[in-house]
Amino acid sequence: MSTQTITVPHLGSSTIGYALADEYDPARPTVVLLNSFTTSVELYRAQFADEELTRTANLLAIEPYGHGATRGGYADFTYWDSAVAALQVLDGLGIDRAFVLGTSQGGWIAVRMALLAPDVVRGVIPLGTSMDAESPRSRELGCWDGIAFLSPAIDALAEPVADDWVIPLELVDAVLPEGFGPDVDPETRAFWHGVHQQNYVGDAGRRRLRTSSINLRDRDGLLGRLDAVRCPVLWLHGTDDRVYSVANAKDGIGRFTNAPRAELRVVEGGQHFLSATHPGVVNAAVAEFVRGTA
């Protein structure tokens, strides 16, 4: 995958990393793909390689603030900022309307985009996500304890580091099983070790990583806003997701009360990074959803 950048005006002018699966075709609908915590556009390699899906839609992967090649003009950012910037990428590329798919944090960025720009977002496809904050209610429904998981790393990343610093592999190895499941194969582990150690370097990399971790731990929930979503929603969730539970997904999909369609599909054996662990199921569902909504 070839990552490009585009400048948008948000946060004092920002450089946003993105990738297109093929040359943009205005005759096809567009699907925006938003990656999960500390990953990059490479999370969607299996989608970019799917000929049927790329015939159905333009695939446009966009990296949120704190991730990949994206850099903000201001020092701090939130998920709302990533939603605004993604909408500005669409505007900068001349794309008037798009479907938005997001994995984990990408899912709630996608919904933020639908809330901010209902005339732009044609449909939302959340994967392995939650619409809640990291709340007691979430944990009661069987989700992880994100506060306990993230707080030690946030504390460890609090002090400035030298220019030769790279993200410690133990931090990467803490994330990978949560996304890919307990048996991460050596090739996948080595690939993501390389991506993380390329993207999180020096004190600027430490700051981006820490802010991304704070955003994940301390984010605002969307439960009270979901009735404002007016586009179709297709939520895909794996039974083996170690981060957010199927019970939480069932609760979340039921809150899109004013969406024309709101469907939850549970994927047997699916992991948190569902687009990577079960690409065939995801790709077919996305193509069907786009064809049925376009």
Rank of each mutant, 00 (worst) to 15 (best):
Q4C: 09
Q4L: 13
V8I: 10
P9C: 06
S13M: 05
G17P: 00
P29I: 04
L33Y: 04
L34E: 11
N35R: 07
S36W: 07
T38N: 08
E42P: 10
L43K: 02
R45Y: 03
A46W: 04
Q47P: 05
F48H: 11
E51M: 06
L59K: 00
E63K: 01
P64W: 00
P64G: 00
G66W: 00
A69W: 03
G72I: 01
G73E: 05
Y74L: 12
Y74I: 04
A75M: 08
F77G: 10
Y79D: 03
D81A: 07
A83P: 06
V84Y: 03
V84A: 11
Q88S: 11
G92M: 04
R97V: 06
F99C: 03
V100P: 01
L101Q: 15
S104A: 11
W108Q: 09
A114C: 02
A114D: 01
A114Q: 01
L115E: 00
L115K: 00
V121Q: 00
G123Y: 04
G123K: 01
L127M: 13
D132C: 03
S135C: 13
R137P: 00
R139W: 03
R139P: 02
L141W: 07
L141E: 10
C143K: 10
G146P: 04
G146E: 09
L150D: 11
L150C: 11
S151H: 14
S151N: 14
S151W: 12
D155I: 12
P160I: 10
W165V: 11
L171H: 13
A174I: 07
V175R: 15
E178P: 01
G179V: 05
F180S: 08
G181P: 04
D183I: 05
V184C: 11
D185C: 06
P186D: 15
P186Q: 14
R189L: 08
R189I: 02
W192Y: 10
G194R: 09
G194D: 12
V195Y: 09
D203M: 06
D203W: 05
A204K: 06
R206Q: 10
L216T: 12
G221F: 04
L223R: 12
L223W: 09
D227Q: 11
D227H: 14
A228G: 08
A228E: 15
P232M: 09
L234E: 03
L234V: 07
H237T: 06
Y244F: 15
Y244H: 14
S245M: 02
F256P: 10
A259V: 12
A262P: 05
R265F: 06
R265Q: 15
E268T: 13
L274P: 12
P279M: 13
V282Q: 09
V282G: 04
N283F: 07
E288R: 11
R291P: 02
